[in-house]
Design a protein around this nucleic acid. Structure first.
Lengths: 215, 215
DNA sequence: ATAAAAATTGAATGATTATTCAATACAAAA
DNA sequence: TTTTGTATTGAATAATCATTCAATTTTTAT
C-alpha cells in the first residue's frame, strides 16, 4: 500500500516540521474516538481502526499511546487558539465589537459542540495526574487571559467603567465559558449555543449598562 | 476478623436502608483513590487496599466495579445536596443572606477542594457515555436550580430588579461555580476559595447594585 | 459448646490492551 | 530491473485488571 508523506517535495526538503498524512489521520481519529467512546474506552486498536491503519503502526508512529493523547490535546489546543488569535489580531475593530466576536467564537458550533467539549473535559479530568496535560491547558489559558484582560481594560476606559476590574471581568467570563461548556454536555436541549451566548452577553450588559450591543 | 454491621441492634431490625461499615469504607476509599490517582488509574485492588479489605470482597460487596463507582458518585452527590439543602431550609433568614450562605457553602473548603473537584470532574468526563452518571448529575442540578431560581426571584422582588430574570441570574451563577471549580484544579495558587467567592459576590453586586452585602 | 449461617479471603481465571518486532509491501535510486 | 531503504502490517507478548469462587474465619442461634 502507498502511504506517502505530504509536503515532501523532495527528500532533501524533509524537515522536523513535516507532518505525515497518517500523523494527522491518527490525531483526528483519536479525538473522534474520545468523543464517541470516552477517554476510558479509547484504545489504540479503536483509534487505528478509525484511522484505517494497523494497530502496530499507530504505536510506532507516536511511540506510545500517551504520546498520541498528548499530541491530540495539543492539536485541539492549537485549533482553539488559532480561532481566537485571529479575532485578537483583527485591525480597525472597536473593542466592544471585538469582545462580541470572541463570545460568538466561544459559542460557535465549531468550538462549543458536544464532541469537542467531551474531549476537553476528558483531558481536564486527568490534568491533576498528568503534568503534560496541565502544561498544555495552562499555557493556553495564560495567553487567552492576558489578551482578554487587555481588551476589557480598553472597554473599561471607553465606557468609563470603574467598578469592575479587567481581571474580574475577564475571570468571570472565562469561568462562565468553562461552566457553560460543561452544561452543554449535560443538557444540550436547554443549553443551546444561543442560550449560552445570550447569557454571557447579558452578563456584559450588567457590567456595561449603557452599551446596547450587549443587549 | 470481625467486620460487624452498624445500626444493627438485632437481626430482626435489619433493613434495606442499613449500611455496613465496609460499604462506607469502600465508598470513601473509592473517592480518595480517584482523588489521588485519577479515575483512569483507579482499580479495585487499589480501592480494596485503601479500605483494608480484600480485593475479592470489594467486588462481592458491590457486585461490580461499575456499581461501586456509581455508588460513590451518588454518595458525593448526596453529601453536596445535604449541605445546600440545609441552607435552603433555614427559617427566618433574609433572601440575600441566604444566597450569601449558599455562595459561602459552594466555596467552602469542605466542598471546593482539589480532591473533591477532581473526583467530580472525573465523573463529569464520563457523563456522555454512562447514563447512570448523567442521571445522578442531572437530578442534583434540577433541584438546586429550582431552589436557586425561587430564591433569586425573591431577591428580585425585594430589590425591585427587573433587568435580569431569576433564570438568567441562577444559570449564570451555576455556570460560574462549575467553571471556577474547574479552574481551582488548574491553578489553586491563583484560584483560592476566597478569590472565587469574591468573584461571584462581585457578579451579584453587578446585578443588585444597591445591595452592600455583596460588596 | 456446637452447629449453622454469614462474612471475608486470596488465589486462579479470562478478558483486555499497550507494546514489540519479524515479515512484507512499497518507493526511490541506480 | 535490481537494490536499498522506508513504511506498514499483523500476530505474538506481557502486563494489567475485573471477576469468580472454593476455602477459611467470624458471628449468630440453639
Amino acid at each position: 500500500m502507498m502511504k506517502a508523506l505530504v509536503n515532501k517535495k523532495s527528500s532533501e526538503q524533509a524537515s522536523e516540521t513535516e507532518i505525515s498524512v497518517n500523523h494527522q489521520k491518527l490525531i483526528d481519529a483519536t479525538i473522534e474516538t474520545i468523543a464517541k467512546r470516552g477517554l476510558a474506552d479509547t484504545t489504540i486498536a479503536h483509534v487505528a481502526k478509525r484511522a484505517k491503519v494497523s494497530q502496530g503502526y499507530a504505536n510506532f508512529r507516536f511511540k506510545s499511546k500517551d504520546n498520541l493523547l498528548i499530541s491530540s490535546l495539543q492539536y485541539l489546543s492549537d485549533e482553539y487558539k488559532k480561532s481566537w488569535q485571529k479575532i485578537f489580531e483583527e485591525k480597525n475593530i472597536d473593542p466592544i465589537d471585538r469582545i462580541i466576536r470572541i463570545i460568538q467564537n466561544d459559542f460557535s458550533s465549531k468550538i462549543a459542540n458536544r464532541n469537542k467539549i467531551s474531549v476537553w473535559i476528558a483531558f481536564y479530568s486527568e490534568v491533576k495526574f498528568r503534568p503534560s496535560y496541565l502544561a498544555i491547558c495552562q499555557r493556553q489559558d495564560e495567553i487567552y487571559s492576558q489578551q482578554m484582560e487587555k481588551l476589557v481594560s480598553e472597554i473599561n476606559n471607553i465606557t468609563n467603567q470603574k467598578e469592575f476590574t479587567p481581571k474580574e471581568v475577564s475571570e468571570t467570563y472565562h469561568s462562565m465559558v468553562d461552566g457553560l461548556w460543561q452544561r452543554i454536555l449535560f443538557d444540550p436541549k436547554i443549553y443551546t449555543n444561543e442560550f449560552c451566548k445570550n447569557l454571557v452577553l447579558k452578563y456584559f450588559k450588567s457590567i456595561y449598562v449603557n452599551e446596547d450591543r450587549f443587549a
